[in-house]
């Protein structure tokens, strides 16, 4: 029982990470119509900058604002120099341009930091697991990530549904020309949305830094799954990104954790492992195919 609970927590954590990445991507895709492959690079920038500052100053928590500031800065520079020119271009141009950004940012990072992964030690207070339930120790930093992710989700909900900026964002995603006709500075709005997405990617990168290895190319690993989340959730919908992110996180983790064991009860060990692993790694893509079959525009399609 504790095992299932622990795996659900693990799934929730993965889901929260996916949401943080997907929220920015879906806004950029839905509102500006830009496919931004370089979103993963912003995640890497956040992790690298955060880890570097935290190590240089010896204070883990200083890494957090550094990561977000660095991602925001790089995001804004990218938006103003490259992305702005892509709004009216076909998707293929956007893919080419943002793919080249991945290569450029990766090589810049190699020049600045080198190919060696850099490491970020957790502060003392967070290193030892805490006993969540009897017999269930859990790393406190992971709980913190889950909490932070849920808070960001809440914040985004309020921002988009309860504020003037949010209203413009919603309007801009469905009635772009009307918003522009009403005299709203749509260019500024786009820059702000892109910056917000970059900020969230940086936050996600920093939070993953002490868990995994901070290194060149880490962004591409998470990018593909993030796109699946965006597509399942419905392009442009932050609510969709949240629901799909959490669902994919939990489903992916549960499949990896339980499917081989379950299959082993009905068939031979090695076959069960192979089949279980195969289905587990296909799981989220199968789910995407299924969702698209029933709801071609995703779970929460934008109206208009």
């Amino acid at each position: 029982m504790t095992l299932i609970f622990e795996q659900l927590l693990n799934g929730l954590l993965y889901g929260v990470m996916l949401f943080l990445m997907a929220a920015g991507l879906t806004l950029i895709f839905g509102i500006m119509g830009v496919i931004n492959l370089a979103h993963g690079s912003l995640y890497m920038v956040g992790a690298l900058a955060g880890a570097w500052v935290a190590n240089a100053t010896g204070n883990f928590w200083l890494g957090l604002p550094a990561a977000m500031a660095a991602s925001l800065l790089v995001g804004l520079i990218i938006e103003m120099t490259v992305i702005q020119r892509l709004y009216d271009r076909p998707h293929l141009d956007q893919v080419l341009a943002t793919f080249s950004l991945i290569l450029i940012l990766n090589e810049l990072a190699v020049l600045l930091i080198g190919r060696q992964p850099i490491f970020l030690q957790l502060p003392e207070a967070l290193t030892d697991p805490i006993e969540l339930l009897p017999g269930l120790p859990y790393p406190p930093f992971r709980l913190l990530i889950i909490l932070a992710g849920l808070l960001v989700a809440l914040g985004l909900y309020v921002l988009i549904n309860r504020t003037r900026i949010g209203m413009l964002v919603r309007a801009g995603s469905t009635h772009r020309d009307m918003v522009r006709a009403l005299g709203v500075n749509i260019k500024g709005l786009y820059t702000a949305v892109f910056g917000l997405g970059a900020l969230l990617a940086g936050l996600a990168g920093f939070m993953m830094a002490p868990i995994g290895a901070v290194q060149i190319g880490m962004g591409e690993q998470i990018l593909l799954t993030t796109f699946v989340v965006v597509v399942i959730g419905g392009v442009g919908s932050v609510k969709g990104a949240f629901v799909a992110g959490i669902a994919l996180g939990v489903i992916d983790t549960s499949l990896r954790a339980f499917l081989p064991g379950f299959l082993r009860q009905i068939m031979d060990g090695p076959d069960a492992d192979a089949l279980g692993l195969g289905i587990a790694s296909m799981g989220i893509y199968l789910l995407m195919a299924l969702v698209l079959l029933i709801r071609p525009k995703g779970l929460f399609p934008m109206k208009g």
Binding site: L3, T253, G269
Partner: peptide, 21 residues
Amino acid sequence: GEIYTQLDQTDYSAEMAQIRA
């Protein structure tokens, strides 16, 4: 227990829980 992970996996928490169990 015998688990094959993905070559691009970054999070091993599911495996950790299985090892513990």
